[in-house]
Design a protein around this nucleic acid. Sequence first.
DNA 1: ATCTGAATATGATATCAATCATATCCTCTT
DNA 2: AAGAGGATATGATTGATATCATATTCAGAT
Lengths: 197, 197
Amino acid sequence: MIDVDMLLTWGAAYKKVQKEEIIFNEGAQSSFYYQLVEGRVRWVNINEEGKEFIQTIIEPGECFGEFPLFDDEPFAASAIADEDSVIIRLHRSTFHQLLKDNPDLHFAFSKLLTQRLRFKFLILKELARHNPENSISTLLQYFKQTKKNICTKCNKINLTRQQIADMTGLRVETVIRTIRNLQTKGLLKINKGKVYC
Amino acid sequence: MIDVDMLLTWGAAYKKVQKEEIIFNEGAQSSFYYQLVEGRVRWVNINEEGKEFIQTIIEPGECFGEFPLFDDEPFAASAIADEDSVIIRLHRSTFHQLLKDNPDLHFAFSKLLTQRLRFKFLILKELARHNPENSISTLLQYFKQTKKNICTKCNKINLTRQQIADMTGLRVETVIRTIRNLQTKGLLKINKGKVYC
DNA sequence: ATCTGAATATGATATCAATCATATCCTCTT
DNA sequence: AAGAGGATATGATTGATATCATATTCAGAT
């Protein structure tokens, strides 16, 4: 999102996190802007029974946990390293100054928030239809279009059935069966368990 | 959102719309900033079978259809007048200039986008649990906290069971039965069919 | 090549919301 | 006070996904 060199100039610091390490918790107060440099981070809500709902999977270059910077409320979800990762953090006040000094960057952030909202609009309306085939194929199509969680060379989806389940509120078995059905209908391909679309 | 006098100074124009009149359609290109002055507007996705999914119900003072202004994509949902309403429109380019001239206003919009995202995060994680009681009580609690779609004096929810159904992807009968159950549990009150919480 | 753990696969059954049908209530109009 | 239309209510049945159990495949390590 923001150029790493620029972040460093403004005093940002790198941080290494191990797989499954919690970067921040839902409900906690925030004082940093976070951006992923290397690895993968999932942004999740965990309910009382410990079940995770994945709001977004963050890939290198993307920011995360930005809500509190704009509205002063606590984190809306927890960020957990999905694999060993490197993140870069910038102090909240510095981030604000950076936006004030760079109106274009502020517009870029408005665009980012808008795109995240669009994704939520899309997923929400599909989930409301209670049709697994629709939900899953819409999700995969979105990933293909935005080149997220997908190999840009071979179109292999870099997500397990469990992760797709955790993004849609479905169960693994349902996701597995639905993806099989989508293959039968010729809407995607499965090779050694991996999904290509 | 933006002060009406300020909007008028910058050349905005009023427009009256009748109940059920379509203000803009999902997928169409946009050239305006929209704000509701009087009445009520629902922001909806309509699927192939004609079933509506209500993304948000807009109340006086709120803006709507702002996504295209920030990311140049088409409307993500249609806006329909829920009752006879008065809206005010400002040209896209003027809106941009207004934000550039007023950094504080731009920050206020970032906050608005963030709050809308938080709402989507909240609803999405609840819907994913497939538990009508949870979904509905979370939704009503949110409306109570944010003073939306509720009478601030008597806590009467200004939504029909059908509208709650269209916001959660449930069916009217399920919403009716669930709200009854919530009353039995003492979580809300029903008087002559109206919900108080 | 073999082992191991994670991921995928598949069958059987249970469960809860959708669906369909119909009745009652509430509010507004005349 | 009566009528009309929309909203709420409620019972019966269906159907799709969750759940539970277990098997198979795959990728990486030794």
